[in-house]
Amino acid sequence: MNIIHTIWSSLLVIQRVIMILSSAFILIGLGVTVVLRYVFQTGLHGLEELMIIPAFWMYFIGAAYGTYKKEHITADIVSVYLKGEKKRLWLQLIISLINFSLISIFAYWSIEYIIWSISSGASSNVWKYPMYVPQSSILVGFGLMTLYTLVELVKNIINLSHYKS
């Protein structure tokens, strides 16, 4: 069990590092763009294209991390009106099952998208990097979201099975 905890913790650390580095690269890129444009009255052709890579990674890893932390906006008014803990546990189970189902579909589509992107050989206009470099963040992000919602689903099943009236 210790190895699982270590892997889980390491995964979260890696996600935080990716989010921090991506944010820093975006800020540096924007800063360079502003300085070049307004101080030197010039620009660096293709800089915006390079900033797409950290932007994709920040967005999708951030979405995965938000899924793990469950610190997103919800409108769960139904649980307020439900009477009884068992009904609330069932509601949480149904919600997590729906979430898992939808995110699994999106993860499957992201696999199909990356396969298509690789097979099409698409590359960026200026720097000619393969487009699957930023787009692979979609697959990684949805893969992590699938993992986190699966863990939540299993926890909700366990909570419901251990409930005593």
Rank of each mutant, 00 (worst) to 15 (best):
I111P: 03
E112C: 07
Y81V: 12
S101E: 09
I105Y: 15
A64W: 00
Y65T: 07
F106C: 11
I111H: 10
I98S: 11
G66Q: 11
Y81G: 15
Y68T: 01
H72F: 08
K70F: 00
N99M: 13
A63V: 04
I103E: 05
I105H: 08
A63C: 14
Y108K: 11
K70A: 10
I61S: 01
G66S: 15
F106A: 12
L89D: 02
E71I: 07
A75E: 13
F106M: 14
I77W: 14
W109H: 15
A75G: 12
D76M: 04
E112L: 12
S104C: 09
E112Y: 02
D76L: 10
Y81W: 14
A64T: 01
T74D: 13
N99L: 14
N99S: 15
I105V: 15
S96W: 00
H72R: 05
L91V: 03
G62A: 02
W90L: 14
Q92W: 04
I95R: 10
T74H: 11
L97D: 00
K87G: 05
H72E: 03
A64E: 04
S101C: 13
A63P: 02
I105R: 08
I73Y: 10
S96E: 06
Y65G: 04
Y68L: 05
K87D: 08
T67L: 03
Y68E: 06
T67F: 01
Y68D: 04
R88D: 01
I94F: 14
K70L: 03
F106E: 05
W109E: 15
I94R: 10
E85P: 03
V80I: 14
G66W: 01
E71G: 11
Y108G: 10
I73P: 02
N99A: 15
Q92L: 12
A107L: 09
T67Q: 12
L97P: 01
Y68V: 03
A75I: 14
I105C: 08
K86H: 10
K69C: 00
S104G: 12
L102A: 13
L93R: 02
A107P: 00
I98T: 13
L82S: 06
L97W: 04
L97C: 11
T74M: 09
F106R: 10
I61G: 01
Y68I: 01
S96M: 08
K70V: 03
E85A: 08
I61V: 07
A107N: 07
S110N: 04
L82T: 04
